[in-house]
Design a protein around this nucleic acid. Structure first.
Lengths: 333, 333
DNA sequence: TTCGTTTACGTCAACGGTGACGTAAACGGA
DNA sequence: TCCGTTTACGTCACCGTTGACGTAAACGAA
């Protein structure tokens, strides 16, 4: 932080008190037009910008929001970060971003750092659905919004999307276009212990309510990556499970499945229809373009920041906020 | 920023002065072991964390670095952000991230905000190679490192990778494996006016020094996206240009080319070998896995932060720093 | 034993703003 | 003309921390 001109430099040049400069800068009432012009000219001449720290020290507000995600390589998170950033910018706030790589200790120290950095609040994707750390920091006064997991309490709220509905939309679309031999490529790990089972449950329920047969062999679990998706699809084909429709845990797995199907000489969608989840940007650039369940990421950002705002005035219990999911139908189905 | 316990609360509980608590917290010399333990216990009991603003106000250092990129959706930038973040974390710094969407006015106001936020320095990928804004803020005292463009001056340095060498590595690899009918899929726009021509120049030079024919028809320009790459490749095939090797501006275009080649029934690498640029994570997950020119993104982050450090002690002219490029050979060649 | 040195603290001011409050001058209504 | 109100400022303290400096007590060497 190289030293910059202060409010006193401006005051001296404009021939007024620092308090008056402060008033002009913050557009408070109580100064004359002539004074305003002199002050603005002086600000321009010395290149003055307010020091956020001095300001934050007394106002106890920083206009800064923290965002914590597991990582940013996965396009899903990259696009989520993008959505929250856009929302922050729209409401004039600065964002601090950190990633925890699914490490609980890192996560704890990130929240610690953000708190001492005086963020007005944090928006968080918790590692492995960790709740304890969230409660700990919220209790100490950190305004927190978790997304992708349901949690609420003092200084603690959440923004969710209806995963069950999304899964149902995807699977019933496969049923509607006449597919009867469905398979789900799911996620091995416990990356998020809440969202995972719901997708599988919705898959089973939708099959059953369509009168289709469900068996455990129709859910194959691997890492939620391209390679994992390819491996899962290859396992299905190798096992000889009859299949004409595939629903995947996320788009990365769908891309992998696409590769495996191509490798086996099966055509998409003629032989096998394919539905992904999350609708990352790449879906529309694939051949064939991938049908996927879309989350409104901009809305997630907006809702999270709005929730933080509400918390400022009323920091008690918050009901989870839901954002819409919708199915985007493309060439793969 | 909800109110948190201060150094005075700790001091009162431990029965010492605030100054002594400060000394313990910052591990300065000059306190007894018994005192240290009492203070640490008190810190733990009240849940004290130093207020960064008060500290920054007096030390004039924030331990914060700004990172400005055009966007974060493109995996190349997402991975770059990741690399810089990792480097920042390793050196104990916090990062503020912003994106400018190639908008010059946004870029200017982002730097303004970061400066008033008291960042120790910024690491920047300039929109459209803009230099004027960089010079303006550097002149006012903002320590700046640009990457991907060569620039230097007071408070201003750059971290680069040798694009020419990267292009040469990629193209001569194609030549070495016996390909003689090469095509380059390049970038229409002026996203970065410096890096662009160098790739094309290296392509031409490498062809010529291998005794191969070069013609303008062998460079096709489109948007640097998957769709752009597909369109470019389709244009080459439609024009009937003979081709057995393709070098692309970036990996996204290579993915598009892969789709177009598959659509035309051409096999990779048997019929056409393919080399991308940047080596985004996805390259290894493609079928066939993509040969690509890799930039050491972690090194970019490290070098950028190291340059900022050097600037603190000596803010004058800096020679650009280069990070390595290397060719990662995979199945597509 | 004496006196310089080190250790282990404490005191005070300052960083750059803004909230709370004070006040002189201008204004306006009866 | 008088007095209450508004306008347009200024003054001062304080936000939480650390730099500069002071000092009493303990220590150590002659």
């Amino acid at each position: 932080m190289p030293s910059r001109p202060t409010i006193y430099d401006v005051a001296a040049l404009a021939g007024v008190s620092a308090r008056t400069v402060s008033r002009v800068v913050n557009e408070e009432a109580g100064f004359g037009e002539a004074t305003r012009l002199r002050v603005l000219e002086a600000i321009d001449k010395v290149g003055y910008r307010p020091n956020m720290f001095a300001r934050a020290l007394i106002t106890r507000r920083t206009g800064t929001v923290g965002l914590v995600v597991p990582q940013m390589i996965d396009p899903f998170f990259a696009e989520l970060v993008d959505g929250v950033q856009a929302a922050a910018k729209a409401s004039g706030r600065t964002m601090i971003i950190a990633k925890h790589d699914d490490d609980l200790a890192d996560f704890d120290s990130i929240l610690e750092t953000m708190a001492s950095f005086g963020v007005d609040g944090v928006v968080v994707y918790s590692p492995r659905g960790d709740r304890a750390t969230l409660f700990k920091h919220a209790m100490r006064g950190l305004h927190t919004v978790a997304f992708g997991m349901s949690i609420s309490g003092t200084n603690l709220g959440s923004v969710l999307w209806d995963v069950s509905l999304g899964a149902e939309l995807g699977v019933s679309h496969l049923v509607e276009i006449g597919r009867t031999k469905l398979v789900m490529l799911s996620h091995t790990g416990a990356a998020n212990t809440e969202l995972l089972p719901r997708r599988e449950t919705a898959f089973r329920h939708t099959l059953q309510s369509a009168g289709l047969h469900f068996s455990e062999a129709r859910v194959v679990r691997r890492d939620p990556t391209i390679d994992g998706g390819r491996a899962a699809m290859e396992a299905v084909l190798a096992a000889g499970t009859p299949v004409d429709g595939v629903f995947t845990y996320n788009d990365a797995m769908a891309i992998g499945a696409l590769q495996a199907l191509a490798g086996a000489g099966l055509r998409v969608p003629q032989d096998v229809a394919l539905v992904g989840f999350n609708d990352i940007a790449m879906c529309s650039a694939l051949v064939p373009a991938l049908t996927s369940v879309r989350l409104d990421r901009a809305a997630i950002g907006r809702e999270a920041l709005a929730l933080l705002d509400r918390m400022r005035s009323r920091p008690d219990q918050y009901e989870p906020v839901y954002v819409d999911v919708e199915l985007i139908v493309r060439q793969s189905t």
